[in-house]
């Protein structure tokens, strides 16, 4: 077996083992980037990410990624979403090199072990999504964006490093189509309030009603599917959620 030759992979599950992909929990999004970035969304090579769909016999070439998990971490949510939405292309974005590598290996291993091809439509890129979102997605391309347990950046001086801010919401509103949904969750009360107030202030987003939240199957995954969420649940911590819809807007 191939998994035996790779010491960083678990022998029982064939998946990469997290202990070999540990990275610092924080990464400064303001620092200069030293990884390749596509010049524009049309320069993004999907055949690398979704070889089954953009290979030689490409039938669904017109299809584009619709979900983006910003700061996907170890990719727990992506893996759960892949089975829940088998027809949707989705992409995770992560700034930390090692963590991205882990998710990449994890997806490759899952693709190999699963027979139904359920994980062929998930992929991950290493990028700084606070800077380069428009290089990856066209206007109105996305229907869901996820910001799960982002870095809280407590110091006031560092608030502009937060992944949700009124300015960055302009860019997220640009890549989300009207009706698209933005999911945010955190275990830090202060950050939860911050994210909610940013979304409330922004004229292009409106809050989902309780009924809508209850009927959305994704909402419960926010806590249960992610590694961070499971950790919070284990410790009996509280989570703060803000789910908003991108609305059509005339200025």
């Amino acid at each position: 077996m191939e998994s035996e030759t790779k010491p960083t992979f678990s022998k029982s599950t064939g998946l990469p083992r997290k202990r070999f992909y540990r990275a610092r929990a924080h990464s400064n999004p303001l620092s200069d980037s030293h990884f390749p970035i596509p010049i524009s969304p049309s320069h993004l090579d999907f055949s690398l990410h979704f070889p089954k769909f953009f290979g030689a016999n490409n039938e669904e070439v017109s299809k584009k990624a619709e979900f983006a998990d910003i700061g996907c971490g170890f990719g727990g949510l992506l893996i759960s979403l892949a089975t829940l939405f088998p027809d949707t292309l989705m992409i995770g974005m992560e700034l930390r090199d090692k963590v991205t590598e882990y998710v990449k290996e994890r997806i490759l291993a899952l693709r190999k072990s699963s027979s139904g091809g359920q994980y062929e439509k998930v992929s991950v890129v290493r990028t700084n999504s606070m800077k380069y979102i428009p290089n990856y997605f066209e206007k109105g391309q996305l229907s869901k964006m996820f910001f799960l347990f982002p870095d809280p950046h407590f110091k006031e001086k560092n608030h502009r490093r937060r992944v949700i801010s009124v300015d960055l919401l302009d860019e997220y509103a640009y890549v989300l189509r009207a009706g698209g949904i933005i999911y945010t969750i955190t275990d830090v009360e202060e950050l939860g309030e911050w994210m909610r107030s940013c979304l409330e202030k922004h004229p292009m987003f409106e809050s989902l009603t309780q009924d809508e939240l209850d009927s959305d199957p994704v909402v419960e995954l926010l806590c249960s599917a992610t590694e961070e969420g499971q950790k919070v649940a284990r410790n009996g911590g509280q989570t703060f959620r803000a789910v908003f819809r991108r609305i059509a807007y005339v200025s």
């Binding site: 009124v166 302009d170 860019e171």
Partner: peptide, 29 residues
């Protein structure tokens, strides 16, 4: 200074901020 050109709708009530992005002109390297 990266490589972006951003086209933003200049709002009528500009003192509330310009949130609607019309397009990004991407191509410069």
């Amino acid at each position: 200074r990266d490589f972006k050109i951003r086209v933003t709708v200049f709002p009528k009530k500009s003192l509330q901020g310009a949130h609607e992005i019309q397009s990004f002109c991407l191509g410069h390297t």
